[in-house]
Amino acid sequence: MRGLTPGYLIRRLGMFVLTVWLGATLIFIIPRLAPSDPVAAMVSRLLAQSGSVEGSAEMIEAWRARFGLDAPPLIQYLRYMRNMLTFNLGYSLTSFPSEVEDMVVRALPWTLGVLSIATVVSFVLGNTVGALLAWRRTPGLVRTLLPLSFTFTAIPFFMLGILLIYIFAFGLDWFPVSGAYGRALTHNWNWEFVKSVIHHGTLPALSIVVTSMGFWGLGMRGMMITTDGEDYMILAQAKGLHPRRIFWLYGVRNALLPQFTALALNLGLIAGGSVLVEYIFAYPGMGYLLYQGIVNTDYTLIQGIVFIMIMGTALGVLMIDLLYPFIDPRITYETR
């Protein structure tokens, strides 16, 4: 069986639906298991702000009705699912007239831009470094220097982000502290704007690249060592193939396959980590929007963003899964 078989396609699509459903259900059920009542909490916050609010009990009732919280749980759940699946994410509680959907659409490109570039760069760099480390022909000097690039592997993205801000933005003043583009600039696809976007995006992207590179590097090193022991490698050498050819087409080509699986499995973690990076850099993407939702206790905003994040990650995984049969033609996925 080669390539994209219908059975494989159906199974992967099923996984996608299951993941989205599980995630959406989790963020619906667990908050409702908690003893606290968001509406009551919101009204009591209003009370604390303005001293007294007349008829706060009626207000709680009215709001509960407004958000459909007085309906039976099952109805609430079905309603919620329908809304989420039609991307009807509702209105933001704190910046009322604006819809969550619009806010998400505005933030999404920033996150996608930085995140995809950073992930691709760290994946490519990390795998190259890892492969070179495990390769006998790599010059000794390179092999002793390369592990230095793994120094920050164990550190979360955002911590390196803070260090980068302190050193390069605050101390040296080479990069801006926050934001995605200069304040004086407007959305215009001219060189000035693009330059500013790159300038602002460098540190956030760098904090993801530097910290996740080592993960790919170490994984790749392990895979290359395993691959190196395979019979076809010995055969390739015995045939007298060019070492570079053996390295790329026999070694890296095969060792890379599990790395793609690892990429699919880690997309969720990367997405989660980027939330904190955006928050640290006040980068106007999904993560920063999410933080604003938290600060303003804007429940619809939080729920909407997280649903989109679950959906986005699941889509990313699905994409990798669907590409996989083309990268690795042996795959049949009957047993794993």
Partner: peptide, 11 residues
């Protein structure tokens, strides 16, 4: 594959 941090944030 679910972004756990995001779900934990909601909770």
């Amino acid at each position: 594959t679910i972004p756990s941090l995001a779900v934990l944030i909601v909770i």
